[in-house]
Deep mutational scan, measured.
Amino acid sequence: RPRTRITDDQLRVLRQYFDINNSPSEEQIKEMADKSGLPQKVIKHWFRNTLFKERQ
Rank of each mutant, 00 (worst) to 15 (best):
N22V: 11
N21P: 04
M32A: 04
T7H: 04
P39Y: 04
Q10F: 01
D19P: 04
L11K: 14
Q28Y: 03
Q10A: 04
T4C: 00
F18M: 07
R3C: 03
E27W: 03
Y17V: 07
K53T: 13
Q40M: 09
I20Y: 05
F47V: 07
Y17G: 10
F18A: 06
W46Q: 01
R55V: 09
T4I: 11
Q10R: 01
Y17C: 06
N49G: 08
R3N: 13
K35N: 08
I6D: 02
I43Q: 00
D9Y: 07
Q16C: 05
Q28E: 09
G37K: 11
I29N: 02
K41V: 08
R12Y: 03
P24Y: 02
E26M: 08
Q40R: 13
M32C: 03
W46M: 02
V42E: 12
S25E: 08
D19C: 09
S25I: 03
D19Q: 06
Y17Q: 06
D9G: 10
E27R: 11
P24N: 00
F47W: 06
V42Q: 10
D8W: 04
N49I: 05
L51F: 05
V42Y: 06
R15Q: 11
S25C: 05
R15N: 12
F47S: 01
Q10T: 03
R15W: 08
E54F: 10
R3Q: 10
R55W: 03
Q56R: 15
G37C: 11
R15Y: 08
V13W: 12
N21Y: 13
V13C: 07
Q40V: 11
L14P: 00
H45V: 13
R5Y: 15
R55N: 03
R48F: 11
I6Y: 08
P39F: 01
Q40T: 14
L14H: 01
L38K: 00
K44Q: 04
E54S: 08
R48E: 14
K44H: 08
I29V: 11
E31G: 04
R1L: 04
L14R: 00
T7Y: 03
Y17D: 06
D9A: 14
S23Y: 05
Y17F: 13
R55C: 04
V42L: 09
K41S: 11
K41E: 12
F18T: 08
N21F: 03
L38E: 01
S25A: 08
N22R: 15
K44F: 07
G37N: 08
K44R: 10
E31S: 06
R12Q: 09
D34I: 09
P2E: 15
F47C: 07
N49A: 10
H45F: 12
K41A: 10
T50S: 12
E26S: 06
D19I: 10
K44A: 09
L11W: 10
R5S: 14
D19L: 13
K44Y: 03
D8A: 11
R5M: 15
M32W: 04
T4Q: 04
T7G: 06
L51R: 12
T4M: 15
W46G: 02
I20E: 05
D8K: 14
T7P: 09
A33V: 06
V13D: 06
K30V: 07
K35G: 03
N21M: 09
E31C: 05
D19N: 10
E27A: 13
Q16L: 09
R12D: 06
D9S: 14
I6P: 08
F52H: 06
P2G: 12
K35L: 07
I6S: 02
I6V: 09
L14G: 00
P24I: 01
S23K: 10
I29Q: 05
S36V: 11
F52N: 14
S25P: 06
Q56S: 02
K30E: 08
Q40I: 07
I20W: 06
N49L: 08
Q16H: 09
F18Q: 06
P39L: 04
E27V: 12
D8E: 12
Q40K: 15
L38N: 00
S23D: 14
E27G: 10
Q16Y: 05
N22I: 10
Q10W: 01
L11D: 06
R15P: 00
W46A: 01
Q28C: 03
Q28D: 04
R1Y: 13
S25N: 06
T4A: 07
N22F: 05
R5H: 14
H45W: 13
F52Y: 14
A33N: 06
T7Q: 05
D34S: 12
Q16W: 09
M32Q: 01
E26K: 12
D9H: 10
G37L: 04
L14Q: 00
T4R: 03
N22C: 12
I43C: 03
E26G: 06
L11H: 03
Q16A: 10
F52C: 12
E54A: 08
D34P: 01
Q28R: 05
L11T: 11
E54W: 02
D9R: 08
T50Q: 07
P2D: 15
F47T: 02
E27I: 10
K53S: 10
S23V: 05
D9P: 09
S23T: 14
E26D: 14
W46K: 01
R15E: 11
R3S: 13
L11S: 07
D34W: 04
S25W: 00
D19S: 12
N22D: 06
L14I: 05
E54N: 13
Q40F: 07
F47L: 05
R55D: 15
G37T: 03
L51S: 13
P24D: 01
Q10Y: 01
D8Y: 05
R55Y: 06
N49H: 02
R3V: 12
T7R: 07
A33Y: 04
R15V: 05
R55L: 06
I6A: 05
F52D: 09
L38R: 00
Q56T: 04
I29S: 02
H45A: 13
K30N: 01
Q10D: 04
D34C: 11
L11C: 00
N49V: 10
L11I: 08
L38W: 01
I6K: 04
E26P: 13
T50Y: 03
I29R: 02
R15H: 14
F47Q: 01
